[in-house]
Structures are given as structure tokens and as C-alpha cells.
Design a protein around this nucleic acid. Structure first.
Lengths: 352, 352
DNA sequence: ATGAAAGCGCTAACAT
DNA sequence: ATGTTAGCGCTTTCAT
């Protein structure tokens, strides 16, 4: 087992001083050609690499980003992480991932654990519990300490920081409009409770579209699923709620704020003997594996998670590397969305 | 913006020495009660937290694990990460995630980037390209430098280190046996090229099961998909290969080495007018979202990714924290698998 | 052209 | 009971 060499051992071995070695390796003109050559050769031979930790301590920056998300077994979030990694690695940054598991407490712990020097800045999508508690002190304190935060997707209006979102209201309206154009008369929505910003905004878009078409909004057609935690563990509960919804509402068009809700609704609808898209048209939000491989393949809104990740990383790294970061006003980037036409809607022929 | 306080500023503020502060905070009995109280109160007031980087440099360990996986937009891998995070966080470790994107070069870069002090050890699932190149120098060198590696799922026999796997051969045989018991006469397999260890082993299990039942092995029924890279980007290509396969083979039972292959095969089969499970029974490997929400829900093998993650983290942390780590023999943990009965097979009534 | 020394934040052995 | 010092690995200023 050969230990990683340090400047010190190289110095001793070559009988020069540590600083000479350091300078030689960084090609300082203070050092003589001959010495440089010797040092470099030796360093290469022993595969010298500067110790990141020492550099971090010296430079007071770690070149690593902390990403805190509610769950990782989730297509959208992993897509975002991909985008973050892609941009970050390109700029020489590493990525530490922390999972809040939708829990306020875990989010706080993760934040604190990493805020003590481990990372230069955060990219975060806030836990549902945090959103419902409306307790954001950990976030504002972090920012107060000079550690920049970029929020994406699940965002807090009251906190001043860079944000990357999707225009949930407009996008949802577009989706509902598509349902209307496709001939749906009775359109419902499966959303989340209002404290989840994206749920609230998407519901707003749904209402806007109905209003714009002079269709009366019926409260009973708005189902707000209450899943504080990972809904994937709780399919039965979800199915039940949707089942009841179908009992009480006769809809021929359905907009779901995520693909799981959409897929589950389709399953329940099928059980009730409905044919998709003939009896019921469905549009989901977030283009994940489920949508693509569903039966029938689900028409859905692509959120471009990869791009959101890239934009978030860019925003954060820009702020970190910009000398007068404090003066830069905070930006909110709105990433565009697309409707991916598949086979659960009637208008336009599905392309493939 | 209030800066994080250091021991130094606390010391100056309280007019004592840095070491006194340090000791007081760690409740050393060398320090007087009165001073301790004062220091602690001050520290709490200013929300003092020791700087992780400084600790890392001092202790020569970072309390963070490096996880390198081929892709993150992938249910199995994220499940494993969840397990790793769960165990690691519990033990006070953080997790840095690096993506190889199935590329040899990116795997090497990631490894080197993190091996310079950023992490204490690696958990890795090897990229397909690395497997096909058979170039493992980066892995052996890392181990040589005293940085322990735990491999999971895609594992290299020639490298000595801790490993966490599934008994691919036996599990696959069990799956194929189930098909046989369910009345299938002509059973095929959709696997990967042999350099992917899990593909090779699962194919072996398939053959074993056929042999054990005195069923002749027909080479044409073994389809080895050649997707060096992320197959999710390449669905058409996959569909084509499977389509051709169905043209050339008449099978009534199909074992697929991952859920994507299974789902895609089901889709193609449906296009050809086959009914599942009446005309064709299917079993997949890896229980992901796709399987659960497929139509019909896919009978599949659960690999217990979360547990694999936990076991990997445990193996790694044990080795890191065990004083005489070098002497411990390397372990290979075989995580058990289960067949999850759903609706693409006939034997046994699906439970839910 | 080379080296000594200070310092990043912290701990711990060793004074006092 | 408290302080001084050295050191983790590196960079950089300031001698020489």
C-alpha cells in the first residue's frame, strides 16, 4: 500500500523546501528550470495530487455543492441531479446529496451538517413538511451566514434567493386547454394540498383555463391529495381517494399534477370500465419513466428536469465565483415546458 | 450577514486561549466549571459549529463516502443510494455522488477527483464500458492507496474488495423455474452482453433451470441486447431487437434481466396480438416503479436495493472504523431476493 | 532561485 | 486550571 505523497515527502526526498516544490508544481517563474523539471518528474512518478481538504481549508472553499432533495427514488429529482452533476463536474465541482425524506427535521439536520464548511452553497427543493410547517429559519440562517442557496421546483416565495422553476400556472392552463380543445366537457384535477406550492399553482392554472373558457369551476372536481410523505409507499391510500373521487364525479378529462397521480387514476378508471382516451382523457405533469411506459402511454408535461438542474448549478456557481456576489440581484429562472403528446389525449395525433 | 464564529474569535472575545475554548466545548475536565459555562453559553449564543474541513484535515478523515454509479435516473440505483444514505447518515457520514454515465473515462475522473482527500472510501457499481474494456487499474490503484472500495451489483471478480451482490444465478433459475411450473414450454430470455456480469450470471441461471428440467437450450431464444450505454435513450433500438426476436422465436415464457426489457417485451408482444399472461408469461428482474405500475403489473424479482445500499455502507464504514482494517478478510454479502407475484405469470394467485 | 514562516480552524501533547 | 506549541497539507508573502 503506497501512501499518497505530500509536498513534504517530495521536498524531503529531493532535498528542497516544501515551498519550492509547491511553486515548482504550479510552474512559478521563481523556480529554476532544472528544479522544476526534477520536481515535476518526481511528482508524476509518484502520482502526486494535492490534497483537496488542505486546499479547501486554505482557500476557504470546497468546490462542492450540497444538494438537498425530498427523495431520490423519484424520476424528476434524479433528472435534476443529473443536470446539476453535469454542469458542476464540468466546472470542477463535486456534489454532495442529502435526502430530507420530506421531513422538516431531516432537512434541517442535513443543512446544518453540510453548512459547517463541507460545501460552498446549496441547491434545494424544499420538503413538504417544511412547506406545511412554514418554518424556514434554517434556510434564512444559512443565507445569513453567507452560504448561497438556489431553490428549484418547490420554492419559498418569502425567502430571497435564486430560484429555478417552471411556470406552473401557465403550463397547467395549457394542459387543461388541451383537454378542452380535445372535447372534454367535465374536467377534473388531481392535485396536492395547497401548501405544496406546485400543487397550488397548478390548481390555479386549471382554474384559469376553465375561466378563460367560461366553464364553471366545480369544487368537487378538485381533488387535493393529502400525502405529506412519499406517496409511493402509500399507493392504496391514493387509489382509495381517487376511487371515491370517481364515485362522486363524472369527468371525461383529467389533469394530474404528477405522473403517479395520473397513472393511478388511469388504473382506477380502467377498473371502473372506462376506456382511455375515449371515455376519459388524461394529462400528467412531469415526464418520467412511468408516463413513457404506461398503458396507454401518457400524454404529459415535460418539465425538463435536466435543464432545471443545469440552470440551478449555473446560478449557484455563478454566484459563488462572482466576486461581488452580494450585489447581484436574485434571479428566478423559468424553465420552459412542453406537452408531450402520447395516447391518453385525443387532439393531435400522437407522434409515436 | 453574520460570519460563522471560529474558536479563535470566541477565544479573543472571552479573553482566553483557543485551546481552552476547544477543551471547554468538548467538556474536558481540565477546564474549570465556570469557564466551561461561559464558553458554552457564548458558543451557543453565536451558534458555533466546528468547521468540518479543519476537522477532516486534522483527523485525516472526512466522514464522507464517495458513491460512483453508472446513472442516477434509474430506480435500482436510487434505491441503493437511499439505503447508503440511510445507514451513512445514521453513522454521521455524508455521501458524495459521482456519475460515470457508463463511461470508463468519467469513472476514472470521478474516482481520482474524490480520491484526493475528499472521501474516506468508495461504494461503486462499475460502468459497462469499464467492464467491457476490462481496464481496472483505477480501482486497484485506489485500493493500493489505502482507500477501501465496496462494489455492489456490477462487480469485478479479479479485484479484491468487499462486495454486495445478489445471487444472480440462483435467483434467475428460480424465476425460470416459476415459468416452467406455470406451464411454459418455450422459455426465452432477454439478457445483456456477457461482459455485464449480471447479464452473464442471469443467463447462466436461466440455462441451469432449463437443464435441471431436461429442457433443451436453444441458442436463438437467448437474446443478448447490446446497449453499452443508457438504454432508456434508446428505446427504439431495444424494441427493434425484441421485435425481431419475436419474429424468430415462438415463446410462451420470457425472463428479462431488467424491468425495462420486460416492459418493452410486453409492449412488443401486445403489438403482435399476444395476451399476457395467457399467451405469454413474463418475469422481470429488479422491482422498480415500472413493474409495479405496468399493465398488467409485472411479476418480478425484488433485488432489495435499499438493503444492498445499507449493507454496502455498513461494510465500508466497518472497514473504515475498524482499527486493523487491513487484516479483515474481504467479504461478499449476498442479499436475498424475492419473487414478487403480480399479474404477468399464472402460477399462484397474485396477492394484490 | 530558494527557503522560512505564517496561517486556514482545529486538536492534543506538553508546559506552566 | 489555563496556555503554548506543533502539526494536519497547502499556498503565499516575505526574507535571503
Amino acid at each position: 500500500m503506497k501512501q499518497k505523497p505530500t509536498l513534504k515527502v517530495i521536498a524531503k526526498e529531493l532535498d528542497v523546501s516544501v515551498s519550492t516544490v509547491s511553486k515548482a508544481l504550479r510552474d512559478s517563474k521563481e523556480i529554476g528550470e532544472e528544479t522544476k523539471r526534477k520536481v515535476k518528474a518526481f511528482a508524476k512518478l509518484y502520482n502526486y495530487r494535492p490534497n483537496n481538504i488542505a486546499l479547501s481549508l486554505k482557500n476557504k472553499k470546497t468546490k462542492t455543492l450540497g444538494v438537498i432533495i425530498p427523495e431520490i427514488v423519484h424520476h424528476f429529482f434524479t433528472t435534476v441531479i443529473s443536470g446539476i452533476e453535469h454542469y458542476a463536474n464540468d466546472k470542477g465541482y463535486n456534489v454532495i446529496v442529502g435526502l430530507s425524506n420530506e421531513s422538516f427535521k431531516k432537512e434541517v439536520i442535513n443543512l446544518e451538517m453540510l453548512a459547517n464548511g463541507s460545501i460552498d452553497g446549496f441547491i434545494i427543493s424544499v420538503a413538504k413538511e417544511t412547506l406545511s410547517f412554514k418554518d424556514f429559519h434554517h434556510l434564512s440562517e444559512t443565507i445569513d451566514q453567507g452560504i448561497p442557496i438556489v431553490m428549484f421546483d418547490r420554492v419559498i416565495d418569502d425567502i430571497e434567493c435564486d430560484k429555478v422553476i417552471v411556470d406552473d400556472v401557465k403550463t397547467s392552463a395549457k394542459a387543461v386547454q388541451k383537454l378542452i380543445d380535445g372535447g372534454c366537457k367535465n374536467i377534473g384535477i388531481i392535485s396536492t394540498k395547497d401548501y405544496v406550492s406546485v400543487g397550488r399553482l397548478r390548481t390555479e392554472g386549471y382554474k384559469n383555463a376553465l375561466n378563460a373558457n367560461h366553464i364553471e369551476i366545480q369544487k368537487s372536481r378538485i381533488l387535493k391529495i393529502d400525502d405529506k410523505f412519499n406517496s409511493d409507499d402509500n399507493i392504496e391510500f391514493l387509489e382509495e381517494q381517487i376511487y371515491t373521487y370517481f364515485e362522486e364525479n363524472e369527468v371525461d378529462g383529467l389533469f394530474a399534477v404528477n405522473e403517479l397521480y395520473a397513472i393511478t387514476a388511469m388504473k382506477v378508471a380502467r377498473q371502473k370500465g372506462l376506456t382511455i382516451p375515449d371515455d376519459l382523457q388524461v394529462i400528467g405533469f412531469t415526464d418520467g419513466v412511468l408516463s413513457k411506459h404506461a398503458f396507454p402511454p401518457l400524454t404529459t408535461i415535460s418539465q425538463h428536469g435536466f435543464e432545471m438542474g443545469e440552470e440551478s448549478a449555473k446560478l449557484l456557481i455563478d454566484r459563488l465565483e462572482n466576486p461581488n456576489e452580494d450585489e447581484e440581484p436574485f434571479k428566478t429562472i423559468v424553465v420552459k415546458t412542453d406537452i408531450i403528446d402520447r395516447e391518453t389525449t385525443k387532439l393531435h395525433n400522437p407522434k409515436k
